[in-house]
Design a binder for these strands. Structure first.
Length: 274
DNA sequence: CGGTGGACCTGCTGGC
DNA sequence: TGCCAGCAGGTCCACC
């Protein structure tokens, strides 16, 4: 489900209702996520107030009073929504946070690739989940020079490189294809054979496609929704992802192809992208 | 060290 | 109608 834009849309939608609210009770219904949920640690949030919501890569950071942060990752199928405290328990509702406002923050994840844990707010960057992460693509530090620098000595296909979180974070399978289409670069091209100035174009394409997707509320293919349950609209703006056989939107006359790179479906225009 | 392929899960879809 | 292969937005680890 969620790449950077979806997590950012989620963060923005939850920020207003959550900040200032207080965790009254934390319920671990099914501890079976990618990393088993630690109920005692999660319950340390009880009685504490939400101070701030941040995003790092595809992780949501919920800073609470008391010096600890609730870290959430949605994996492939995770959903985080605010519902009434009395809303029914869903089949894959792993976690529920009862809030002083009478709302409940519900975390559901059928495929169980998600993550939820509590860590000291001051040490987050050093946590094993985060310390290896690369540059934030929407930060001022991200540009073609950074990409070119990190590409030195590497030979991987540029799409694999873009999806490598130790290089740049937040770019998943959808937006990697979309950014490469916008940059007119073939997804299989080795980063060893990309000219310096094409990295500038690529960095700009990544920044733009992520920004556009955030503006449109993210991409809802099956089930993405923000914290209030609203779907995104960016799926109608996708140029290539999921569009095998359709005409290239640039009007070049070619049709979009699907190939597999590193076990992931990849979409591109064979004429526009070289 | 870098690159690749598979493992981890459930649920949905499309073809037969 | 029913079954089953194939596929799905992420991440990690073993292996070369």
């Amino acid at each position: 489900m969620p790449e950077l834009p979806e997590v950012e849309v989620l963060r923005r939608s939850l920020e207003r209702p959550l900040v200032g609210d207080r965790f009254n009770a934390v319920h671990v219904h099914f501890p079976t996520l990618r990393e088993p949920l630690c109920a005692p640690a999660l319950r340390r949030l009880e009685g504490h107030t939400v101070r701030r919501l941040r995003r790092r890569a595809k992780y949501l950071w919920v800073d609470a009073s008391g010096g600890e942060t609730l870290v959430l990752h949605l994996g492939m199928s995770g959903r985080l929504t605010l519902v009434d405290r009395d809303a029914p328990l869903l089949a894959h509702e792993h976690l529920g946070f009862e809030l002083a406002s009478g709302l409940r923050l519900r975390f559901c994840d059928p495929r169980r690739f998600g993550v939820a844990f509590v860590a000291p707010t001051g040490d987050l960057d050093g946590d094993r989940h985060f310390r290896h992460l690369g540059v934030e693509p929407l930060s001022a530090r991200f540009d073609g020079a950074v990409l070119a620098d990190l590409a030195r000595g590497r030979t991987a296909p540029v799409k694999t490189f873009l999806m490598n979180a130790s290089v740049v974070v937040g770019v998943g399978n959808i937006y990697a294809s979309e950014a490469l289409y916008r940059a007119r670069i073939h997804p299989r091209r080795s980063v060893a054979r990309i000219a310096h100035r094409r990295f500038d174009v690529l960095a700009e394409a990544v920044r733009e496609v992520l920004g556009d997707a955030i503006e449109q509320g993210g991409t809802t293919l099956n089930d993405f929704a923000d914290g209030e349950g609203n779907s995104g609209y960016f799926q109608v703006s996708l140029d290539v992802y999921g569009r095998e056989g359709e005409s290239c939107p640039a009007g070049c006359g070619s049709r979009i192809r699907r190939i597999v790179i590193a076990n992931r479906s990849t979409y591109y225009c064979p004429r526009c992208q070289r």
